[in-house]
Design a protein around this nucleic acid. Structure first.
Lengths: 197, 197
DNA sequence: GTCTATAATTAGATAGAC
DNA sequence: GTCTATCTAATTATAGAC
């Protein structure tokens, strides 16, 4: 086993991010101090500045990497050709991805107003790209007659809000298993867009 | 016109609450200082403590009065007998009420983690009572065959998340008028629960 | 790479003058 | 009812020893 040569740089950086994610999700960005993060990692506050230039950048990096991971994961997801199949794939993917990362999801939705204006624009652009992925599916289904949607943009926002809402109430080991939740949301989503197939 | 007898107590209290609501919604509870609130009202920081014992209680009062107003307004709303009509009434009521109070809605959903444990329990109880109102409609519709819902509790959470999501994207004077948005959401909600009528 | 110490600022809340 | 002044404590971020 390779010796770590006395350096912790390969582990402390990620641990700082993990501790920040946990604390930001639990108490909110503004309510968490750099000292709390340091204590969670097990270092002193000053040491954090070896891994981030400031607290704001720490938040931005968490949100940016979450959304880039989301886009990359959806891009790598196998999807069918028919709009109905693609919508089902999106619903399952969205729920699975979000339930697997409750902290990152929480931060990405709740801490937008704590971003600097430039950072906010960057995050919003990434989020918009993800919304466009769903809107593309709905447009295709509307075009080929699979769906019956009064307004695709509104349906996009409604569906994403509905799906993301699972993270507010779902608890592992609760009344419903994840697969059951996914199936029920697929059913509701297909019905909501008036799917025929 | 009655003279104000030199006292501002009838106006400053509400103005403190209004300023706090605006600032909490914009920047978040933890990021707003008592001095900022005082500046918005046009008094000094110390004067705020004539109207609230502390910052935490100020937040709690905003959330509590919002939810009590929500429950009272829904209770006073005229509703039909048939489940379909009652669901339509709920959708229109929920969207209308929430779009009219973007600040209070934002605070009630985003600042739960900044409540003390006791205050959190009180707010959650109020929120649960409101969710139960929708769940009652869905249960009735499921019972009389108007709706076809795999799981009423899950459908309740899904619908509320979908409806509340309007506050994230709707802008007055935007592409769609409020009535159009309500109509489209009614359509999607009815379809999502498999309404037959 | 981490710690200790500290600078500079700001926070929530209170006391007492007016 | 409001202001000024202040207390105590906590904040972000940096400097320099090790």
């Amino acid at each position: 086993m390779a010796r770590k040569t006395g350096s912790h740089s390969q582990t402390t950086g990620p641990r700082v991010r993990a501790a920040a994610a946990t604390l930001f999700a639990r108490h909110g960005f503004a309510a968490v101090s750099m000292r709390q993060i340091a204590a969670e990692v097990g270092v002193q506050a000053g040491a954090l500045y070896l891994y981030t230039p400031d607290k704001q950048t720490l938040l931005f990096d968490l949100m940016q990497s979450h959304l880039e991971e989301l886009l990359a994961a959806w891009g790598a997801e196998p999807k069918g050709d028919a709009p109905c199949g693609r919508l089902v794939a999106f619903v399952r993917f969205h729920i699975g991805f979000h339930l697997a990362r409750p902290e990152a999801v929480f931060i990405a939705y709740m801490e937008l107003r704590n971003l600097s204006p430039e950072n906010f624009r960057a995050i919003e652009a990434l989020r918009h790209r993800y919304e466009d992925a769903l809107e593309g599916i709905l447009r295709a289904g509307q075009a080929d007659g699979s769906f019956h949607i009064p307004d695709t943009r509104l349906a996009t926002m409604a569906l994403i809000a509905m799906l993301t809402g699972v993270t507010n109430w779902y608890r592992e080991g609760g009344r419903l298993a994840r697969a059951e939740v996914e199936a029920i949301y697929c059913d509701m989503a297909l019905k909501a867009v008036g799917a025929t197939g």
